[in-house]
């Protein structure tokens, strides 16, 4: 969020809005003030970042500088927040396009897309939702691909609590164990599978608390309100290691791989900028970032 604003502030506005400018001039529109800059709102955990043109006067000057730049409206699963900000900054710098990203849970984003949200591509937290969007005609056929494979960790804000084998789940009595809602969040479902395969689900069920998304689950644990929680590795990994607290990387054989798929949506079908972004996600530059945040690649 901050970085989007910063870039607008330091004079790069000139590269950003020509497409919009052309549209505006192409179909003459009343109303001088072409809009405000940067409306940032927070609704629940959904962030809407939008940067809109200053004024038509400025835009006329702008058109000459670069004709290819465009805006891409993107819906991104909450767990991919941190890497997406890095990738977005690089992509904007490399391509001159501008990304408008809405973060939210995959279920909510699905509901919004099915009800006419203007997103041009979705980066989901699972593979089912993109498949469903394709089936229902909201996604473009044959554009699905796995952009990241999520890793589950058992994490505590307390640096001494979690051992490197996850034995704490079996041995100690725990206050609260936070998971993401297994009905709606793939990381929550993976946590349930892992506990079942470890044979501890029966013992742990009474102390489970659910976050509505993996982001909220992380918050429960970070605040200490829940002693332990299953979160995404991407949330606790900084360059090269666990940032704070203690964690156990849950072995792959304890849960089904969390394949996070992206899909081009019908609203982005004929937009080169959107296609460029999806291609960029598969570039080595983006993949470096994705790996650094603790995801695997297909």
């Amino acid at each position: 969020m901050a970085l989007l604003l910063a870039e607008v502030d330091n004079g790069r506005v000139s590269r950003r809005f020509p497409e919009t400018a052309r549209n505006r001039i192409g179909r003459p529109k009343a109303g001088g003030i072409a809009s405000r800059l940067a409306g940032i709102t927070r609704q629940g955990n959904l962030q809407i970042v939008s940067v809109k043109p200053f004024s038509t006067a400025l835009l006329t000057v702008v058109i000459a500088t670069s004709a290819a730049a465009d805006e891409v409206r993107l819906a991104v699963a909450a767990n991919f927040n941190a890497p997406m900000h890095r990738i977005a900054a690089q992509f904007e710098k490399d391509s001159g396009h501008k990304l408008l990203i809405s973060f939210g849970s995959t279920g909510k984003l699905y509901g919004q897309i099915a009800n006419g949200a203007p997103f041009e591509a979705l980066l989901a937290a699972d593979s089912d939702t993109p498949a469903r969007l394709e089936r229902e005609g909201y996604g473009v056929l044959g554009t699905r691909f796995t952009y990241a494979i999520g890793k589950l960790v058992l994490w505590s804000a307390n640096p001494a609590l979690v051992d490197d084998r996850g034995d704490i789940l079996k041995t100690r009595s725990i206050g609260h164990l936070a998971i993401a809602n297994p009905k709606t969040a793939p990381y929550g479902a993976a946590a349930i599978t892992a506990m079942s395969r470890l044979g501890v689900i029966g013992k742990l069920r009474p102390i489970l608390v659910q976050g509505e998304s993996i982001a909220q689950t992380h918050q429960f644990v970070a605040s200490g309100a829940a002693e332990l929680g299953f979160v995404a590795l991407s949330q606790v990994q900084t360059e090269g290691g666990i940032g704070a607290g203690s964690a156990w990387l849950v072995p792959d054989n304890l849960y089904e791989a969390i394949r996070q798929d992206a899909i081009l949506l019908t609203k982005g079908r004929d937009k080169p900028a959107t296609t460029a972004l999806l291609a960029y996600l598969r570039s080595s530059k983006a993949q470096l970032v994705i790996r650094a945040y603790g995801y695997e690649l297909p």
């Binding site: 509901g111 609260h176 936070a178 709606t184 489970l208 659910q210 976050g211 509505e212 429960f220 829940a226």
Partner: peptide, 23 residues
């Protein structure tokens, strides 16, 4: 602050939200 626990903190508004999220 509820943690969405059935019969303890899962009130109607949260249950409703869950249904919508789960489609």
């Amino acid at each position: 602050i509820g943690g969405n626990i059935p019969e303890r903190t899962r009130v109607v508004s949260v249950q409703l939200y869950d249904h919508v999220e789960a489609m």
